[in-house]
Amino acid sequence: MLTHRSRTSVLVFLLPPLVVYGVAVLLPIVQSLVLSLFSWDGITAMQFVGVENYARMLAGDAVFWRAFANTLGYLTICLVLQLGGALVVASLILALPTGRELAKTLFLLPAVISTVAIAFLFQHIYSFDPPGLLNQVLDLVGLGGLQTPWLSDVSTVLVAVSAPEGWRFTGLYMLIIYAALAAVPKELEEAARLDGASWWQLFRQIRFPYIQPVWITTVIMATTYALRGFDIPYLLTNGGPGQSSELLTTYMYKTAFTSTDFGYASTVSVFIVIECLVAVGLITVLLRRRDA
């Protein structure tokens, strides 16, 4: 549909970002794939081991599978907080008669705050001795018996490290979903109200189907970011206590830079890439099939 000159212009403008993407994203993935076939400590010569690293990862590494299970739990908590919270907050802000811009700005602020600052903030919130904000609130409402060292209790640590990540990006996804909801034709909503549709029917039959493409994109974004989550869990607990909050990303990092086993760490990184691709494929197929 484009003239030859237009096609040339499009290619010229696309070339720089494609080159940057290839160098910054595709090349490291290929390098990790190649390195995963070797045993290397970063100093001595690399030794080719073939698929031995993959066999070790899938069949003989209990810590890897514990980290994988923790990653799935981390993903579930993040998705519930981020997508559920974003959808609720966006709907509430859309119903505000005034002050929408201020509300959107306040909810978006956590996404631009330094990760290190967020980690330190939640360390103080979760603190047991001296009591942090969370334990103080529990004591004030008469639930002092529920006070616990949230980051050192194996039964609560995974939720504790997941909550800051969920809170951090809720505002970002809220902004995306809010823009989609605001674009829903008002004529459809008014016609539905005249027919006696309730708020839930209005949302389920008109608003949500209309924002379905945006919702799929947002789910994919949230899923891939959560599967690659690293900084806040690492800063809060470094995977502890034991491996109770160990994620695949923190395990990969420690394998590379603490154990200096770069070949095996690359194997874990390849698995993370495959995991993200599989997740994106499943989300796309399931949501579109349900929509059909």
Rank of each mutant, 00 (worst) to 15 (best):
M1E: 12
L2F: 12
T3M: 02
T3F: 07
H4N: 10
R7H: 08
T8D: 05
S9I: 15
S9C: 06
V10R: 05
L11G: 12
P17M: 06
P17S: 07
L18E: 05
Y21D: 10
L26N: 06
V34R: 10
V34F: 06
V34Y: 05
L35R: 14
L37P: 08
L37V: 13
F38T: 14
F38K: 10
F38I: 09
D41S: 08
T44R: 12
F48Y: 14
F48G: 06
E52D: 11
Y54V: 08
A55R: 13
L58D: 03
A62K: 12
V63Q: 08
F64T: 07
F64G: 11
R66T: 15
A67E: 04
F68W: 13
A69V: 15
N70G: 09
N70S: 09
L72R: 00
G73I: 02
Y74N: 11
T76V: 15
Q82K: 08
Q82M: 08
L83D: 05
L83N: 04
A86L: 11
A86S: 15
L87N: 03
L92K: 05
I93A: 01
A95V: 02
G99C: 06
R100P: 09
R100C: 13
E101C: 06
F107W: 01
A111N: 09
V112Y: 08
S114L: 01
S114F: 01
A117E: 05
I118N: 00
A119H: 03
F120N: 07
L121Q: 11
S127C: 09
P131Y: 07
L134G: 00
V137N: 02
L138Q: 00
L140E: 12
L143N: 04
G145I: 12
L151K: 00
S152H: 07
D153R: 01
V154Q: 10
S155G: 12
L158N: 02
V159G: 05
P164N: 01
L172G: 13
Y173S: 11
Y173F: 15
I176V: 15
I176R: 07
I176Q: 06
Y178H: 10
A180L: 04
A180W: 01
A183R: 09
P185L: 08
E187A: 13
E187G: 06
L188Y: 14
A191H: 03
L194K: 00
A197K: 00
A197N: 02
W200R: 12
Q201F: 04
F203M: 09
R204I: 03
Q205N: 10
P209H: 04
Y210V: 11
Q212F: 15
P213A: 09
P213M: 13
P213C: 04
V214G: 05
T217G: 10
T217N: 08
I220G: 04
A222D: 04
Y225T: 15
L227Q: 01
R228V: 14
D231R: 02
I232F: 01
I232H: 02
Y234I: 13
L235A: 10
G239S: 07
G242K: 03
G242N: 08
G242R: 01
G242F: 04
S244V: 01
L248Q: 06
L248I: 13
Y253F: 15
Y253T: 15
T255I: 07
A256D: 09
T258A: 08
T258M: 05
S259N: 10
T260G: 03
G263V: 04
A265Y: 00
A265R: 07
S269P: 02
V273I: 14
E275F: 15
E275Q: 14
L277I: 15
L277H: 12
A279M: 00
V280G: 01
V285F: 14
R289Y: 08
R289C: 02
